[in-house]
């Protein structure tokens, strides 16, 4: 093997030189835009800090408002109508009288034309409620039951109007008006 190694070492290799190509390549290299040294790591550091601050703010929001997770879930999974519709209804109800009686069915109907309700959330709520009853309470399947949506609107005087609608009927009506934000009186 030593002989073979010596043979490979002694093997004449082409000693080629290419000075013209070397010069041309150097010219090409000088026209290449080299990235500014040190800027890349700073951009990466700044991006990391932004992400960390964002995550920190999110965590702080969850700690400060324990209801945030639940309200986010309701918004994402389903539940009350989007804020845009609620505020539109509230804006219309301002036109009405102090107890909401002048909130016309047409006004409400327009808002409620998009009737949607999360049956799963309702079922979870009832099951939770029944589990807290002193005596066992059977909850019948909600399938083939009438499903209602209940929406709450705030009037300009601070009173609340509850509207519930049987899904599919397309015939909403005002059922309850609260005297104050704290208590709701059902009619």
């Amino acid at each position: 093997m030593k002989d073979f190694e010596k043979l490979l070492t002694d093997l004449p290799k082409p000693a080629v030189e290419v000075p013209a190509f070397k010069q041309e390549l150097w010219r090409e290299l000088q026209h290449t835009q080299r990235p500014v040294h040190g800027r890349g790591p700073w951009i990466a550091l700044a991006a990391s800090l932004v992400v960390i601050v964002g995550l920190g703010a999110l965590l702080a929001a969850f700690v400060a408002d324990p209801e945030l997770a639940a309200s986010l879930r309701v918004r994402l999974v389903g539940g009350p109508e989007p804020a845009g519709i609620a505020s539109a209804a509230a804006a219309r109800s301002v036109v009405g009288g102090i107890d909401g009686s002048t909130l016309t069915l047409e006004d409400v109907h327009q808002v409620l034309s998009r009737t949607d309700a999360s049956v799963d959330l309702d079922r979870a709520f009832i099951e939770d409620w029944s589990s807290q009853q002193p005596m066992p309470v059977d909850v019948r399947s909600m399938e083939a039951e009438s499903v209602y949506t209940i929406r709450k609107y705030e009037l300009s005087d601070g009173k609340h109007v509850l509207v519930f609608t049987e899904l599919g009927s397309g015939n909403p009506s005002v059922r309850a008006v609260a005297d104050s934000p704290a208590s709701t009186r059902v009619f």
């Binding site: 082409p14 000693a15 080629v16 290419v18 000075p19 013209a20 190509f21 041309e24």
Partner: peptide, 12 residues
């Protein structure tokens, strides 16, 4: 560059 390359190929 072209001439140089042809010479290099001949050496090779």
């Amino acid at each position: 560059v072209r001439v140089e390359r042809e010479n290099a190929e001949r050496i090779l």
